[in-house]
Computed example of a mutant assay.
Amino acid sequence: MTTTRLPKTITAGALLATPIPPVKWIIPGLLPAGLAIFAGPSKAGKSWLTLWLCLQISQGKSVWGREIEPRTVLYFSLEDTLGRLQERLYQLVDAEEDPERLILQTESHGIGQGLEEQIVSFIHTYPDISLIVIDTLQKVRKSDQNGSMYANDYKDIGALKELADKYGICILLVHHLRKQSSSDPYDQISGSTGIMGVADTTWLMHRQRMSKTATIRVIGRDMDEKMLHIREENCVWTLDEEETAEQQALKAIPDYLWKVADYIDSVGKWQGTATELLVAANISDVKPNQFTRKMAHYARDIFSPRGIEYKYTRTEQKRLFEFFHDDDDGDDDDIDISELFHWGIPQTSS
Rank of each mutant, 00 (worst) to 15 (best):
I132W: 02
G147Y: 05
A151W: 03
I171Y: 12
G110C: 09
E100H: 14
K142M: 13
Y90D: 12
E162P: 08
L163M: 08
R88S: 07
I157F: 02
N152K: 04
S108A: 15
D156V: 00
Q118E: 13
R141E: 13
L89W: 02
I119S: 00
Y154Q: 00
T106D: 06
L131N: 04
I129D: 09
Q86H: 14
L85T: 00
E100M: 14
L102W: 00
D135P: 08
R141H: 06
G147V: 10
I129T: 14
F122R: 10
D135I: 01
D153C: 00
L82I: 12
Y90P: 09
C170E: 07
L137M: 10
T106Q: 08
F122I: 08
L102V: 06
G147F: 07
E97G: 08
I169S: 07
V120R: 09
D128A: 07
I157E: 01
I169R: 13
G110Q: 10
L102N: 08
K139E: 11
Y150W: 12
S143E: 14
R88K: 10
N152I: 05
D135Q: 01
Q113Y: 08
A95M: 12
G147D: 01
I157D: 01
T136C: 00
L173C: 01
D156P: 03
L89K: 00
I134H: 06
S148V: 02
H124Y: 11
H109I: 04
R141P: 14
G147K: 00
K161T: 05
K161R: 04
I169D: 14
